[in-house]
Computed example of a mutant assay.
Amino acid sequence: MMGKTLRATVIRLAVIIAAAVGTMPAVADDKITIIVSSIEKQIYLPAKLAEQLGYLKQTGLDIELRSVPAGANAEKEMLLGLAQGVIGFYDHTIHLQARGKLVQSVIQFSQAPGEVALVSKAAAKRIRSPADFKGKTLGVTALGSSTHFLMHFLANNAGVKTGEFATLPVGAGEKFIAALRQGKIDAGMTTEPTLSRLTAYGDASILVDLRSVASTEAVLGGTYPGACLYMPKAWVDKNRDAVQKIVTAFVQTLRYIDTHDAREIAEKMPPEYYGEEKVLYIEALKAGKSMFTADGMMPENGPPTVLRILREFDKAVQGKPINLANTYTTEFVKAARQAFPE
């Protein structure tokens, strides 16, 4: 059997060669790989839940969900041809279009980021709002990630220029917790269940909450669609039947989330997702459940908000013409909704 490292190298070379001659395989090895940026995060709950409920298996497709530490990493692997899609933040579709890469959100999981800016216990007296970020070290999952985008916006919007604070990529989960507890970062942006673990034990407090539509609109000035499944448009166009089956499975999952309470949903998740802190996991899901869309549709006022924020500080997007209509499609979701009437 070919080792994973060797196989990845072979695939990467194949992609480079294929790109050079202008051809790309529709599906590698008849397997559809979807990369999730830290699959254990509650913002990406629909990914694992769809698998746990059996909806992905019911598609008849060979679908692999693979987790990587950050959205920026997932994006790179997809562009290399190592995956057919990414479950990450919608803002990546805009960032990639600015770089000449056409990808689309084919289903929108959330209508709010689900992210929270935390301040460590040690720095709480010195940081009472993003206006106090000057001279501080801020933690994000990775440079170029959605947490990086949003943290910079919070600082810039509060009058703190990009060069006046440091940004440190610290990952998520245990790595983020360690960085904050060890004083490597003064504040940072993270999600559930990491958030609840830090606040429950007094290690951090909430500075900015972006878990609901209302709080997101108040802070960002509009709806900010977060988690979605995005794919290269060329692959979508060549594999429409497969995309429809995948989207339909996720629409079923979002319906399940919408019609079941946090405890029922948690019971479907693998025990390792909450460990010995199941109660915290359930409470966190209760607090953030409203971020998910009920049917996978993109909020109409969402894309313009995301573009406005990215244009304020993202150099890759600044000055570039962006066609928002090409960053997402609702046709697959609409077809799935017809299969599951209210």
Rank of each mutant, 00 (worst) to 15 (best):
L6V: 14
L6C: 14
L13I: 13
A14I: 04
I16Q: 14
V27E: 06
D30T: 10
D30L: 03
T33F: 03
I43P: 00
I43D: 01
P46F: 06
E51T: 03
Y55L: 09
K57V: 07
T59M: 05
D62K: 07
E64W: 01
V68L: 11
A70G: 04
E75Y: 06
D91C: 09
H92M: 12
I94N: 04
R99L: 15
S105V: 02
V106K: 01
I107G: 00
Q111I: 01
P113M: 07
A117C: 14
P130W: 05
T141N: 11
G144S: 09
M151C: 13
V160K: 00
A172K: 06
G173T: 04
E174P: 07
E174N: 13
K175V: 09
L180F: 11
I185C: 11
A187F: 03
G188D: 05
T190E: 12
R197S: 09
A200S: 14
A200W: 15
T223E: 08
G226C: 07
V236K: 00
V243F: 00
T248N: 11
L254E: 02
Y256W: 10
T259L: 11
E272W: 13
Y274R: 05
L285H: 02
G296Q: 08
P299D: 11
P299G: 06
E300V: 12
L307S: 06
Q318Y: 08
I322E: 07
E331A: 12
E342F: 10
E342V: 14
